[in-house]
């Protein structure tokens, strides 16, 4: 995490770009963008010391809507690009934006290994249980009976529980947030950034275009009835038994982040030649 600014405090507005989002009116991602900038302001990070990294999908358009350094890469690989960036540049605050298709389907393997590797990243997944950018196909978190052109009558497949997987794979911080509560979400993102290691924040972010029924989420979500735990077994029981609508930090540990020492060695490349010399 980079050092807070010394001069006049930055407002959330200072982290916004002048570029107009392509999202549909009413999309939950607008609120998530606002939570990003609120969290950055809360932490008073310099915009140039933040990198927002993403893959492909509606949620992955976020970087250019911020005034931070952005990286909009290829589908599913945001965590890899972000890990490379953070390992090479440990001085930066690196936040990764993804969605349920980008993060859990095509990027599923990187999700596992990012949790396991525990690089100091904050991974925010805007989950709306649908591929929005390609106009309405089922994702790993889509209900098995959800009807679509690509899966008439539903996929018949059980849904993927990303929080359980994050826990099993070794994520250091696991939270669920709701886009309809931008202030609460900003708090969670700020805490995720503040917590060293790999922090995973799943945000329920309604897709009003392809999943209009998700408008009801605001009636269904509730603060998690218990405070966060450091006990992985307890966290697993809670996450596996809740209905997916408990909001808040659900697990927080203190595993040491993975950060090999960049920039420490002082030898000149020619010093390496000795091993080849006869």
């Amino acid at each position: 995490m980079n050092t807070p600014a010394a001069a006049a405090p930055l407002t959330a507005q200072a982290y916004k770009s002048d570029y107009k989002p392509i999202w549909c009116p009413g999309c939950g991602d607008y609120s998530v963008l606002s939570s990003f900038t609120k969290a950055f302001a809360k932490l008073q990070l310099r915009p140039e010391n933040i990198a927002v990294v993403s893959g492909i999908g509606c949620s992955s358009r976020i970087p250019a809507y911020t005034n931070c350094y952005g990286f909009h890469g290829v589908h599913g690989r945001s965590l890899a690009a972000a890990a490379g960036l953070k390992l090479a540049r440990p001085d930066l605050t690196v936040v990764v934006a993804s969605g349920d298709g980008d993060g859990y389907s095509i990027g599923g393997n990187h999700f596992l290994h990012a949790c396991r590797r525990n690089v100091d990243l904050t991974y925010v997944v805007m989950d709306n249980h649908v591929y929005g950018m390609t106009k309405g196909q089922p994702s790993p978190t889509t209900e098995p009976d959800w009807d679509s052109k690509l899966s008439p009558g539903g996929t018949g497949l059980r849904t993927f529980n990303p929080l359980v997987i994050a826990l099993a794979a070794g994520a250091n911080f696991i939270a669920r947030a709701f886009a309809g509560d931008p202030n609460g979400t900003a708090e969670v993102i700020a805490e995720a950034i503040r917590t060293p290691g790999f922090s995973f924040v799943e945000i329920l972010s309604p897709c009003v275009t392809f999943r209009p029924e998700q408008r009801e989420w605001k009636q269904l979500v509730r603060p998690a009835p218990v405070t966060s735990t450091e006990d992985a077994a307890r966290a697993a029981r809670r996450i596996m038994t809740d209905d997916g609508m408990n909001i808040g930090v659900l697990y927080k540990a203190d595993r040491k982040p993975y950060q090999p020492p960049m920039g420490k060695g002082k030898k000149h490349p020619s010093d390496l030649e000795a091993e080849f010399a006869l």
């Binding site: 290829v74 890899a80 490379g84 393997n109 990187h110 000149h268």
Partner: peptide, 20 residues
């Protein structure tokens, strides 16, 4: 020489890491 090597989970990750 002040650098780092990291093992990736696959080649998709290794190449995207170096782009990052």
């Amino acid at each position: 020489v002040g650098g780092v090597l990291v093992q990736a989970e696959d080649e998709l990750a290794s190449v995207n890491m170096i782009v990052g």
